[in-house]
Amino acid sequence: MRRTLTNAQKVEIVAELTTNHFGDLRRLERMIRRASDAGADFIKVQRRSVEDFYTDTQLAAPYESPFGTTFRDYRSALELHEDGFALLDRVCDEEGIPWFASALDSQSVQYFAQRGHSLVKLPSTVSHHSDLIEAAARSGLDVVLSTGMVSEEYVDLLLRKFEAAGRIYLLQCISAYPAPVDACNIAVVRSYSERSRVDPRIIPGYSSHDDGSFVSTLAVAAGARMLEKHVKLGSTSWAHFDEVALDLETGAFHDYVRDVRYAELATGSGRKEVEAAEHHKYPWRVREVAQ
Rank of each mutant, 00 (worst) to 15 (best):
E153Q: 13
E153L: 05
Y154R: 12
R160I: 00
K161H: 15
F162D: 06
F162G: 10
F162K: 04
A165E: 05
A165L: 06
Y169L: 12
L170W: 09
L170V: 08
L170M: 07
L171I: 04
Q172Y: 06
C173V: 07
I174F: 03
A176S: 10
A176K: 15
Y177K: 11
P178I: 05
P178S: 02
A179H: 02
A183Y: 02
A183W: 11
C184S: 15
C184R: 04
C184A: 13
I186C: 02
I186G: 01
V188L: 10
R190N: 15
R190A: 15
Y192G: 13
Y192T: 11
E194Y: 05
R195L: 12
S196G: 01
R197T: 13
R197Y: 02
D199V: 13
D199H: 12
D199N: 10
P200R: 05
R201N: 13
I202F: 01
I202V: 06
I202L: 07
I203P: 08
I203Y: 14
P204H: 05
P204S: 05
S207I: 13
S207N: 03
S208G: 09
S208A: 07
H209D: 10
H209V: 03
H209T: 08
H209K: 01
S213Q: 09
F214D: 04
V215S: 03
S216K: 02
L218H: 12
V220Q: 06
A222R: 11
R225W: 12
R225T: 09
M226P: 04
L227V: 10
L227N: 07
H230M: 02
V231W: 00
V231R: 02
V231Y: 10
V231S: 00
K232W: 01
K232Y: 03
L233S: 03
L233A: 15
L233Y: 07
G234S: 01
G234N: 07
T236H: 10
S237W: 05
S237L: 08
W238D: 05
W238I: 00
A239F: 03
H240S: 08
F241A: 06
E243L: 04
E243S: 05
V244E: 04
V244Y: 02
